[in-house]
Amino acid sequence: MAFLLVAGIVLSHAPGIANAACSGRFIDPIADINWKNLFPIRIGGYVVAKAPPSLPDTRRDSGKKLLCHCPLSVPPYVRIGIPIAFWEPLRLGEVVRKPLCFPSLGGLDLGSSIGMTLPHGARKADKDGGKASFYHVHWLANPLLFILNIITDVVCLQKESFDILYVTELDPLWSDDELALILNPEALLFGNPIAQAACAADCAAATADLPLNPLFWCAGCQGGLYPFTGTVTDHVGGVMASLLLVERFQAKMHRELLADFSSARVGQCQPYPFPIVVKDQYRYQLVLPIRQSTVPSLPFGRTETIVSPGKEFPVKGEDFVWQSWRKRDCCAF
């Protein structure tokens, strides 16, 4: 991905290559990121920084003990530490209509720069008179705590730099609902009214507090998580569709073992890949086109109607960037 980024930056400044259909700006880690999402912070069993009432913590709390321990492969075969729990800004999810358009990179248009022909996002009426849509998703590493050195104990942080991790334009499963069944064959079990009706309970739970992890096929008020593609069959608005696709992509990353279980005692020593999305360890903040300000962030599946007014507008306000926050439990020493 690095060579694509360099090539795009160079070529996008060549005459006649820049495309006005791709717009955006670079993310300001101070002004655009709501740092209230870092809370609550718990150290050694004590809450040292409380969260606003709208930000519930996970149900699995491993930070209430004064000490913790992790196994070692060499003597003394155990490491004693202090449990630390916080929320970590780790990924940016871009949801775009135009292939290889990167709003959070200042509107960088790699699609036009390197001349690639890929499926475009579109909205169209379906057979029932409703609206469907299709978007691409870009997954970017954005470990702000590590980059800004806000928490100095790097044992507890994801040791990464800013990078482009995944673009769905190069994933044939993202644009084909039937082909995506290779990755999520269980989608056939949940494509029925009874299973989808259960998502109403997930919506109510996520809006009142936290989503229901056992209902792993639901994205709360945004609808069903399946299939893991860029198609939104019931497009209500860009904010709703983009949040659904970020949540869906988060589930896709878990299924591909590219996302970790990082909370509770089991993830305290070392996050480990987990094939089913752990919904209550994620929360999302809208960053672009307009920063979410009414509430710090939305737990997985919470209704987007409390933040969507005024966030979508023609031309420069139809692509969306969400900051994903992940709960991190850690045994620091």
Rank of each mutant, 00 (worst) to 15 (best):
L157K: 02
V137P: 10
P214L: 06
V167T: 06
K311I: 00
L286S: 15
Q270S: 13
F146E: 12
I27P: 13
C269K: 13
A132P: 01
V321H: 06
S112N: 15
P56F: 03
D126R: 15
F102I: 12
E256C: 00
N19H: 15
D234G: 15
L245S: 06
D28N: 13
L179R: 14
V278E: 14
L189H: 11
A332Q: 12
I30R: 10
D234W: 10
T168P: 14
V307L: 00
L110S: 05
S113F: 02
S293L: 02
N149H: 14
S242H: 10
R265T: 15
D153K: 08
D153H: 13
D61G: 01
D61N: 15
L170H: 13
Y166N: 11
G129E: 14
A206H: 14
S293D: 08
P275Y: 00
A264H: 15
E94W: 07
G44D: 09
V10K: 05
S297P: 02
V96H: 11
L100W: 12
D260Y: 14
R302V: 09
S54N: 02
E94F: 04
N192C: 09
E312C: 04
A49P: 04
K36V: 03
G81K: 00
F3D: 10
C70D: 05
L286Q: 12
V154M: 04
G220R: 01
D202T: 12
A132E: 11
Q222L: 12
P143E: 04
Y272T: 03
L225W: 03
L244Y: 07
I41A: 07
K98Q: 12
K159T: 10
A206R: 13
N19Y: 11
